[in-house]
């Protein structure tokens, strides 16, 4: 980190900037107008240009991150949402990527129990897609020979690693169909109530969305939480624990599980 230059910070600059931000977002800055030179143009008009810029930049970034939500809501309603959301949760960073972080929770707060409740699930899915797009690259694959060589009495302690881009979701509405329709440039419909288990990940060709069986989601969530093979097995219903071999085969061969640790070290992690 750089040495702190904030020691030279000027309080009046801080106050000016604080009032400016308040004025743009909340029209609330008693002292700002006297600090602005009118120079032939009404000060409110000058400030309105910056308000328009801030709204437009935020809304465009949100539209880019949540295209299915935009399609579901329509442009006008989405723009209205963007502005109320921006005022509730202004951008927290200079990198606009982060503005979508709180949108699913914001929608949950405002739409729970309404006829548009399915939009919460749409936003959760699209934020998972955004996270998958920027996740760390990994070309690691499970070393099957090394996995087979783990002694039987140590196998319960194996920990599996998922590809860094993998995101797991359990939604209260079916949104997979909406995503597929949007990808195919078809009109999107309303989400239908009913649990859906989803896996999102990034492949070379782009983001892939996959429906999961509840059992698969349960097991992968246990692995994602850092559980050992024994712990992830115990997370399954007793009657379905015999599915472990099939689960392991499915997700190792599918490239979702990319590595394993035995004795506290990932097999593919040469730097550990």
């Amino acid at each position: 980190m750089p040495a702190s230059p904030e020691a030279v910070q000027d309080f009046s600059l801080k106050e000016l900037q604080r009032q400016f931000v308040r004025e743009i977002l909340y029209r609330n800055s008693a002292g700002l107008r006297s600090q602005v030179v009118a120079n032939g143009l009404d000060v409110d008009r000058r400030l309105a240009i910056y308000r328009t810029n801030a709204r437009e930049t935020f809304a465009l970034a949100l539209e880019a991150a949540f295209p299915v939500l935009l399609a579901c809501m329509g442009g006008e309603e989405f723009r209205s949402l963007a502005w109320t959301y921006q005022r509730a949760w202004p951008s927290p960073a200079g990198n606009l990527f982060h503005i979508g972080t709180r949108l699913p929770a914001y929608l949950a707060e405002h739409l729970r129990g309404s006829e548009d409740e399915y939009l919460i699930a749409v936003a959760r899915l699209e934020w998972a897609v955004q996270e998958a797009l920027v996740a760390t690259d990994s070309s690691s694959v499970v070393d099957l020979a090394a996995l087979a060589a783990v002694p039987a009495d140590s196998q319960g302690e194996i920990r599996f690693a998922l590809h860094p881009s993998v995101r797991l979701l359990r939604t209260e509405y079916g949104v997979f169909a909406l995503w597929e329709a949007h990808q195919a440039r078809q009109p999107v419909t309303r989400g239908v109530q009913g649990e859906e288990c989803l896996l999102v990940r990034r492949l070379a060709a782009g983001v892939q969305l996959q429906r999961l069986l509840p059992l698969d989601l349960l097991w992968l969530e246990a692995l994602r939480a850092g559980g050992t093979l024994a712990e992830s097995t115990a997370a399954l219903p007793a009657a379905e624990q015999d599915q472990l071999g099939a689960l392991l085969l499915r997700w190792v061969s599918g490239g979702v599980i990319t590595d394993f640790a035995s004795g506290g070290r990932l097999a593919g992690d040469v730097t550990a």
Partner: peptide, 16 residues
């Protein structure tokens, strides 16, 4: 500048 009190406008705002 573009932020105050941790609230970003993500715009290129003028300096005094």
């Amino acid at each position: 500048w573009s932020s105050a009190d941790g609230l970003f406008l993500n715009d290129l705002l003028p300096m005094p």
